[in-house]
């Protein structure tokens, strides 16, 4: 097929030219499209919105947020490497999603297909109850669950997700079996908890901040007590070894040149250092972290190892 060969040659040449052009010009040389693989309104969206202003201030270019929801993010991630790799298109990436999804089924991409350039924050797991719940402490929940295994319902977002992992880790560490009820999106879980459909909710510190007096966090999965919730114990204090949550970062198509990845990583690092951005994030309950491009491989290896065991358990339940 002469046609195919010729087309491939032209395509390859065009790509090479574009690649060189991308490397030669200053990055970014135009508005940057920032794809969020989820619907608007969730943590991934809000933090992207918070990044827009500092990004604009640092680079002089607009950061345009777009939503490509589908299959818990898998649809967007599966399409990431087909997008132009000139740094003008970047995508939000989430952990444990990009590790768990390929472990549990074939979502159309592999964990190592995704070129993460920066992990910029995480939301610590939190177990929440509504304000008038009979459960005052985490021990109350554990006692009730042990008395009636599976009798307590715990809401969370989606199946095989960060919340689902938290539910499983909690069961492993405490011996308390809760019935996990999956919802579509954080918003739906919040109305399920506040409206009394589920007894407890696997959420994040951000949910506790947003819902204010309507909910009470019983425990938070950080190393030390969260500054916004000085009265709420950590899981560790209560003897349950759970530290973690959902990590969010930025990835690029695999065709993106190394120097563009490095520059992007530097820019996101500068965004993270912006004092107004940090305050906004921390007041909402996010924990800002800095995992630049250089440290990414080590970070991903550590997280992948942490999720492997729990993935086996979730698979066994399918």
């Amino acid at each position: 097929m002469i046609g195919t060969t010729a087309r491939r040659l032209i395509g390859a040449t065009a790509l090479a030219v574009m690649g060189m052009a991308g490397a030669a010009l200053a990055f970014p040389d135009g508005p940057v499209t920032y794809i969020i693989p989820f619907n608007a309104g969730g943590e991934s969206d809000i933090t992207a919105r918070y990044q827009q202003q500092p990004f604009q201030k640092i680079t002089g270019q607009d950061l345009i947020v777009q939503y490509l929801p589908g299959a818990g993010g898998a649809q967007a991630w599966a399409g990431l490497n087909g997008m132009p790799g000139d740094g003008q298109t970047i995508m939000g990436t989430n952990l444990p999603h990009i590790v768990l999804q390929p472990m549990l089924q074939d979502p159309g991409y592999k964990t190592e297909d995704i070129a993460n350039v920066y992990m910029f924050h995480f939301t610590p797991d939190a177990l929440l109850v509504r304000a008038d719940s009979p459960y005052q402490t985490l021990q109350d929940v554990i006692d009730a669950a042990k008395k009636m295994p599976g009798g307590i319902t715990a809401g969370g977002t989606a199946t095989n997700s960060a919340n689902h992992v938290a539910n499983q880790l909690f069961a492993n560490a405490s011996g308390a079996e809760l019935t996990y009820i999956p919802y579509t999106g954080t918003g739906a879980t919040e109305s399920a908890l506040v409206g009394g459909e589920v007894d407890v909710l696997w959420g994040y510190t951000t949910v506790a901040v947003r819902q204010g007096d309507a909910v009470r966090p019983l425990a938070i999965a950080t190393e030390e007590r969260h500054p916004l919730f000085p009265d709420t114990p950590t899981f560790k204090e209560l003897g349950i070894d759970m530290v973690g949550g959902a990590y969010r970062g930025i990835g690029v198509p695999s065709s993106t040149p190394e120097d563009v990845r490095q520059q992007l990583s530097d820019i996101i690092g500068q965004v993270n250092a912006d004092p107004a951005f940090r305050t906004q994030m921390e007041n909402d309950g996010y924990a800002v972290i800095d995992v630049p491009y250089a440290d990414m491989d080590a970070f991903m290896a550590e997280r992948t190892a942490a999720y492997t065991a729990v993935a086996e358990q979730l698979r066994a339940q399918q």
Binding site: G70, A71, A74, L104, Q105, A158, T159, P182, Y183, Q318
Partner: peptide
């Protein structure tokens, strides 16, 4: 597609 409940 991916089932929200069950994850299949």
């Amino acid at each position: 597609g991916v089932a929200v409940i069950g994850g299949d």
